[in-house]
Design a protein around this nucleic acid. Structure first.
Length: 205
DNA sequence: CGACCGATCGTCT
DNA sequence: GACGATCGGTCGA
């Protein structure tokens, strides 16, 4: 059921419901291409961050700082920031400019460029940890803070649709990971995972 | 398996 | 000065 991959365009990202977009991003293919080194993987875990009303979002309450500036960049903007002093986390910005909606891409099933991913992560073997979790994924794909503020319409970082669709019973919805301090918003069902996929972060291996 | 802990540093108060 | 949208290892049951 797959057709020749088509790059997602501005209209895909420029919609109001970031939670819906997070769900639809499951099964899409994230691609990076740096100096003709191509890496790609199928997205199997995402989380939505619902702008100014979401306590877990960096833009909660309309907060706007140097770090979160690109959260406000509008549909198709790349937002990458450093977490815990060492991990680079990759987000896709949705909705119109100045509306800080984001989807955190948390896990991939590697497709192309696995050799380069091993080199970047300095792992000896391609096990399930290669692109499990947002920190590992960004490292494996060669994405870092230097790419924040770019967009997904370039040839360097973009997302493709090859026609794959998961059925409703293949998708599991949970609360988000690592956002306990967001109080009641920590319970929101904003995390989407492909059921049983070994690259999904969290428990079990 | 679950709970905990150290690494590590940019960002915000 | 404190705190992360994490990760991988250890320890105990």
């Amino acid at each position: 059921m797959s057709v020749s991959p088509k790059k997602l365009d501005h209209s895909f990202y420029n919609r109001k419901n970031v939670v819906q977009i997070a769900k639809e991003l499951l099964g899409k293919i994230l691609v990076t291409q740096f100096d003709s080194v191509r890496s790609s993987g199928r997205i199997v875990e995402t989380e939505a961050y619902n702008g100014v009303e979401d306590r877990a979002c960096h833009a909660f309450g309309g907060r706007r700082t140097a770090r979160s500036e690109h959260l406000y960049g509008g549909a198709g903007t790349v937002y990458i920031y450093i977490c815990y002093g060492m991990h680079h986390l990759f987000n896709v910005i949705t909705n119109e400019k100045d509306i800080p909606h984001a989807v955190l891409i948390r896990a991939l099933e590697p497709m192309e460029g696995i050799g380069y991913m091993l080199k970047r992560t300095r792992k000896p073997l391609a096990d399930y940890t290669l692109t499990k979790g947002p920190g590992n994924l960004a490292l494996a794909m060669g994405m870092s803070k230097m790419h924040t503020g770019g967009d997904l319409f370039s040839e360097e970082i973009f997302i493709e649709d090859d026609g794959l669709r998961y059925k409703k019973d293949q998708i599991v919805i949970t609360k988000r990971i690592g956002v306990e301090s967001a109080r009641e918003d920590a319970e929101l069902p904003y995390r989407f995972i492909v059921k049983g996929n070994p690259y999904v972060s969290g428990k079990k291996s």
